[in-house]
Simulated scan of single mutants.
Amino acid sequence: MKTCYHLHMKTTQIIIITLLSLFTVMACQKKKNNQSPTIHFIAPQNNLVIEQDTILSIIVEPHDAEEKIKKVELLLNGVLIKTFDAPPYQYDWQDAKMYNEGTFKFSTIAYDNKGATGQEEINVAIKDYRTKYLGDFNFRIIRESWMDGEQTTYDTSFYTGEIRRYEFTDSENDLYSDYDGEENPNEKITIAFEQNTKITSLLHKDGSLITKSGYHYQHKGGFFDMDEITFRIDNLGGLGAGWNYDIVGIRE
Rank of each mutant, 00 (worst) to 15 (best):
I126Y: 06
L74W: 01
T83W: 04
L239K: 09
T12R: 09
I42G: 01
F137S: 02
D64I: 00
L175K: 01
F41E: 00
D206N: 15
V248M: 05
T169A: 15
I39M: 01
A110V: 04
R130A: 15
K212H: 13
I210L: 14
N186C: 12
N196M: 05
K105P: 00
G118Y: 03
K205H: 15
Q218P: 00
Q90F: 01
G102K: 07
F139N: 01
T160A: 10
Y5H: 11
G149V: 10
H6K: 13
G222W: 05
I16R: 03
D148I: 13
T12A: 14
L19M: 07
T108H: 02
F41S: 01
V79S: 14
E167Y: 14
E150D: 12
W93D: 05
N33W: 08
N173R: 08
Y245M: 06
D92A: 14
I17Q: 10
T103W: 04
G181Q: 09
K31I: 08
K198P: 03
I14R: 13
Y133R: 06
I109L: 05
L7C: 12
L239D: 11
F158T: 07
T38Y: 02
S107Q: 08
S107D: 12
L203N: 07
K2D: 14
G78N: 10
A110P: 02
A65L: 07
F41A: 01
T12H: 09
S177A: 08
H216R: 05
T18P: 02
S36F: 11
V79T: 13
A241L: 07
N113G: 04
N235H: 13
